[in-house]
């Protein structure tokens, strides 16, 4: 787990964890691709329902999740407010010279449903993976080696540096620092970030030396326990069929 307040919680022996991480990534991708190509509101509602069901099943914490989705809505809200007025179509209601169209409202709803459905599925299928497992899965799916190692090492050090950041911040608070919109705040924050970066640089030099000391010679290995079983293939097939079915429904309804 990332040592930061994420939306997931610790859990053991969950049914989702019996599937290969690669399968979970691929399913999320298939779902996203399908959802963005759907237009019919009932089908999109179905997608959102799938997302909600998965989120509930995977044990995402409801409170933080709701707050997170609301935050995502700032752009959504903007589109929801402007789209009815910008999309041409039959008048739904009008304020002064502005005409709100039913088509515009439909467009806004589509976007709202799509974005939330995809975020929910992504968080519940992929967000509940251990970051290290995710890194390995990305590597096995063909992400360049160097990028995978960058990902894995960054995940490792986010926790360490977050502690460092908290310590520096605490030291500022102990000296009665209160942030405001003034030069003093900007300079203090600027130095805070500078300090964080400088200490990170020193730490990275120690890391490299420690790695060399253990025989690092331009090569890192991925030791992964991910196993692709026949049930993974079967699930992928079922999900692909489900997505195709949705796309056919979209055409025929």
């Amino acid at each position: 787990m990332l040592p930061l307040p994420t939306l997931t919680q610790e859990r053991e022996n969950h049914w989702l964890d019996r599937f290969d991480p690669r399968l979970r990534l691929l399913c999320a991708l298939l779902f996203a691709l399908t959802t963005v190509s759907l237009q019919q509101i009932p089908l999109l509602l179905g997608c959102l329902l799938t997302g909600l069901l998965l989120a509930w099943q995977s044990g995402l914490r409801a409170g933080p999740l709701a707050r997170r989705l609301l935050l995502l809505e700032s752009l959504m809200l903007l589109l929801l407010l402007t789209l009815p007025f910008t999309v041409a179509g039959e008048t739904w209601f009008s304020i002064g010279p502005l005409n709100a169209s039913g088509e515009g409202l439909q467009r806004a709803l589509q976007i709202l449903l799509r974005a939330n459905a995809i975020v929910l599925v992504l968080l519940s299928l992929v967000g509940t993976l251990e970051p290290v497992t995710l890194g390995h899965a990305l590597g096995q799916l063909g992400m360049p080696r160097k990028l995978v190692h960058l990902f894995l090492l960054s995940v490792r050090y986010i926790g360490v540096l977050f502690q460092e950041y908290r310590r520096l911040r605490m030291a500022m608070r102990a000296r009665a620092f209160v942030a405001g919109s003034n030069r003093h705040t900007w300079r203090s924050f600027g130095w805070l970030l500078g300090m964080l970066l400088v200490r990170s640089l020193e730490r990275s030099q120690r890391v490299l030396r420690a790695m060399k000391c253990r025989g690092f010679h331009d090569r890192l290995y991925l030791l992964s326990e991910n196993r692709w079983h026949s049930r993974d293939s079967l699930t992928l097939l079922l999900v692909a069929l489900g997505c195709t079915y949705l796309l056919i429904l979209e055409r025929t309804l």
């Binding site: 090492l153 960054s154 995940v155 050090y157 986010i158 540096l161 970066l197 990170s200 730490r203 990275s204």
Partner: peptide, 8 residues
């Protein structure tokens, strides 16, 4: 390592 720590 340097790139990763700075990314973090």
């Amino acid at each position: 390592p340097q790139a990763a720590v700075l990314t973090a």
